[in-house]
Design a protein around this nucleic acid. Structure first.
Lengths: 153, 153
DNA sequence: TCTTTCTAGTTGACTAGGAAACAATCCCCG
DNA sequence: CGGGGATTGTTTCCTAGTCAACTAGAAAGA
């Protein structure tokens, strides 16, 4: 009777398409950031510090969907580049606070412009309202599944 | 005058949300596959071999959006697990052909079921027609931007 | 108080992948 | 033919993450 078990195709999974597009967008973005000597994770890290003066590594790890270990090393790199500084916390000697240094702060608008350009490049193929819909759907998944994350790949 | 330069937020970029969701979906999937001792890349690799009997590493690299070097190592791992085999190509002594071994072939339906479950878990929060729309939008980006992602039709 | 337990951040071992150099082989053109 | 360039797959080195063990300090409880 030739009973072939039904095996779903790769293309039938939204996760597959999501991964394909996301990897591409991130790789494209990474390439643009390369000229600025910054990675995607570093951009996200700096953009977060730009808004919130006082951020702890743990909070950042949570917000970026990365482990504390990864944040620790990421911070090392940014400190080495003189874009970020670590400040000891007075209240709690274990804790620290991360902050942008002036050079880092000055860099953020430039990187933001690259992010804008990257988004235009990849999502410009969609109509305005399609972009709105995509945005809505992605946010819905994030909120319904309660994830706080952005990683980098 | 206080001319603050406008710095776009992380959340204003579709790439940001895409990355957030995609990473989450993939991490969730990776965790499910872990019990089977397989990675996401290995699943994709095997699923492709499942359909097309004869695939060269280069084609696979193209289809999976990875470098040939990465495919070479990925193949090494799968060969080591006895799921895949390399066959020399008769016509061209440089070339080779990758094929699933019986153990690998037997594994695919199980992994496909996990992929189905993962998709349900993450995208089940959307309505049926929202999923259709998301699918459409992602495919549109892939086709308009000519991403390598699998010759689909 | 002092001791146990928890929390913040760091570190080391390991993994997957990219970039580029490489060897083998093929192909084309003189 | 035969030699220069393309192409196939591998390899080496590097980067950026994870996980789990670790250190230092804080907190809670007897």
């Amino acid at each position: 009777m030739d009973e072939t078990p039904p095996v779903s195709s790769l293309e039938s999974h939204l996760g597959y398409w999501l991964r394909a597009v996301s990897n591409n967008v991130s790789q494209g973005f990474a390439r643009k950031l390369e000229d600025e000597g910054v990675t995607v994770a570093e951009w996200v890290f700096m953009r977060m510090l730009f808004d919130f003066e006082t951020v702890s590594p743990s909070e950042l790890a949570e917000a970026m969907g990365m482990t504390r270990g990864a944040i620790s090393k990421l911070a090392d790199r940014l400190v080495a580049k003189d874009l970020v500084e670590r400040r000891a916390s007075l209240a709690d000697k274990r804790a620290q606070t991360l902050a942008l240094k002036p050079a880092g702060r000055a860099r953020v608008p430039v990187l933001a412009a690259l992010a804008d350009g990257n988004d235009r490049e990849f999502f410009g193929v969609l109509e305005e309202e399609e972009r709105g819909e995509l945005d809505r759907l992605l946010r819905k998944i994030v909120s319904k599944r309660g994830l706080a994350a952005v990683t980098t790949d």
